[in-house]
Design a protein around this nucleic acid. Structure first.
Lengths: 144, 144
DNA sequence: TCCTAATTGAAAATGATAATCAAAATACAT
DNA sequence: ATGTATTTTGATTATCATTTTCAATTAGGA
């Protein structure tokens, strides 16, 4: 399934780049893939540390960056100074609804919006490589 | 016109909050309003400093934050670790096209996209307070 | 003018990430 | 299995943009 596919993609990335497969990378990858999406580095480190006290913060940072480079994860910034990573299969994309009340994050995709973005870019002579769309507000629970 | 209106809005903000009108705030406001949009704090500080050597970095940071609070400016983050401010009249809104080649920034507005965003939010039970849409790619010059 | 509270600028603190570096681990050839 | 060159690790230190601190200054009302 998807999970093993990502592990395979990362394995290939490691091999292609001449990097090494290590105990720490395996542990972090397993933990990352079985965690909820959109975890901040700090949060992931804290939770991982409870089970694997030996792993350093620097290693977690480095390894998450590698996940992003390999294409199995994506780095996201919501403007709160925390870097978050979400696991993601290559080519997949979605945008975020962020609740400013409780911090909940919902994902969505909207083909029409993406098409309109392309139109906007065209009219300015730009070629888009990536985009970021975030909607901030209150979720159903918090708006009460 | 717009420029004086913003100065007036800020003046009212200062009064309402029980803050004081100072020489530094006046200088920074004038400089900010007559500068190009999307300046980073560092860039603004550097240019301001050339004309007014006495003003400290901390004061510039603090004052720009006040501009944002008063509603005459908006804080933006493009993910490069630099905070930028743009001057803006209350209620105005636009999104950005960012050239990853030369750093050029173009602005756009698209009512249809905004409407679709609202639809998305509705379908998730969210109420949107703000949003961020950034398109990253190459501008006409850099794509050659 | 006087007085109190806000503001300033310089320097130190913060907070998240990145770089350094000696020690440990890995991959590969033998 | 062993050696060895190379990469990786974890602890520590550095970085970088912003914030905070704090004593000195300044604003604005009494």
């Amino acid at each position: 399934m998807k999970r093993d596919m990502k592990k395979e993609v990362f394995r290939e990335f490691i091999a292609r780049e001449g990097l090494k497969s290590t105990r720490q990378r395996d542990i972090i990858l397993d933990f990352f893939l079985s965690s909820k999406r959109h975890m901040s580095v700090e949060e992931l480190y804290r939770k991982l540390r409870a089970r694997h006290p030996g792993i350093g913060y620097a290693t977690v940072c480095r390894t998450l960056k590698l996940f992003a480079q390999s294409g199995i994860a994506h780095e996201i910034h919501f403007g709160d100074g925390q870097t978050r990573y979400e696991h993601l299969v290559e080519g997949e994309h979605h945008d975020h609804l962020v609740c400013t009340g409780c911090g909940a994050i919902a994902e969505f995709e909207n083909k029409t919006i993406e098409d309109l973005q392309k139109d906007v870019a065209d009219s300015h002579g730009f070629i888009i490589h990536s985009h970021k769309l975030e909607l901030y507000g209150l979720c159903a629970k918090c708006r009460k």
